[in-house]
Amino acid sequence: MQISESQIVNGVSSRDRKSFAKLLSICEDNPVMANKIISRLQRKEAHVVGITGSPGVGKSSIINALLSKLSRRVGVIAIDPSSPFSGGALLGDRIRMQSHATDQNVFIRSFSSRGALGGLSPSIFEVCDAFETFDMDMILIETVGVGQSDTEIANIADTVVLLLSPDGGDEIQMMKAGIMEIADIFVVNKSDNPASIGLKTKLEGIIKFGGKNIPVILVNSITGDGVDNLIKELDSRFERIRVDGTFASKRKKRVFFHAQSFLRRKIDTIMQSIESDETDIEKIEKELIKKLCS
């Protein structure tokens, strides 16, 4: 059943979905090998868009609506939390995107956060790089959506979209807490709810007060109303950041964050192999360094 690195490289280059699916599994289980394979593949710089917001706000639905209207190659990385008790996970984000399961221009993949905090998965950098080897024009990342700690998305996405809904009471609270700083575009969902207009006005006030210039877009993720505007905004932003240098500097930083994430994972793996009944911190440190160097 094992397939070789070369088979994967050849498969992914010829856009074989099965090979690409395997590559993503390797990203999760073996980052060293994943990085090696990715380095052998041609990459295309896609627009990496992070979609964040509280649970139930409609992140999967908005991705589904985007997929219906984006006539280009789109990758979706959907992340759900792992269970702190069993380590297992229920990955249900796909449910709302299943009408695109057989769409050849779309590739959706579900990931467990595997204990990682920050709303992403430990393998997110490898996975994101891998998607760029599969000839994608846009990569959408759906974060876990636990709120304040969901800020890591800014380290990997070129554009962060913060989704809000007029039904949620904690929205403004959440923004005060700091997630607002990382948002490049605000989207207010459920535009059929009259309260959405009020929320948009309120947001625009807060943005203005903060001396910023961030667009606020009204959408209805179920009917697709307003999604065209969001696409227009995403595209014009992508064009803009490529010209003004933001994109280049983000990508440069992403390499650093990738290295950071890669090393953390390596340390985590080693720590798991060290006897847990060892109590002397210095000894643990020595052991870790020894294993790191070997």
Partner: peptide, 11 residues
């Protein structure tokens, strides 16, 4: 006109 309902992700 109305769109289609997609079930909530509840287990």
């Amino acid at each position: 006109v109305f769109g289609e309902y997609k079930e909530s992700v509840i287990f």
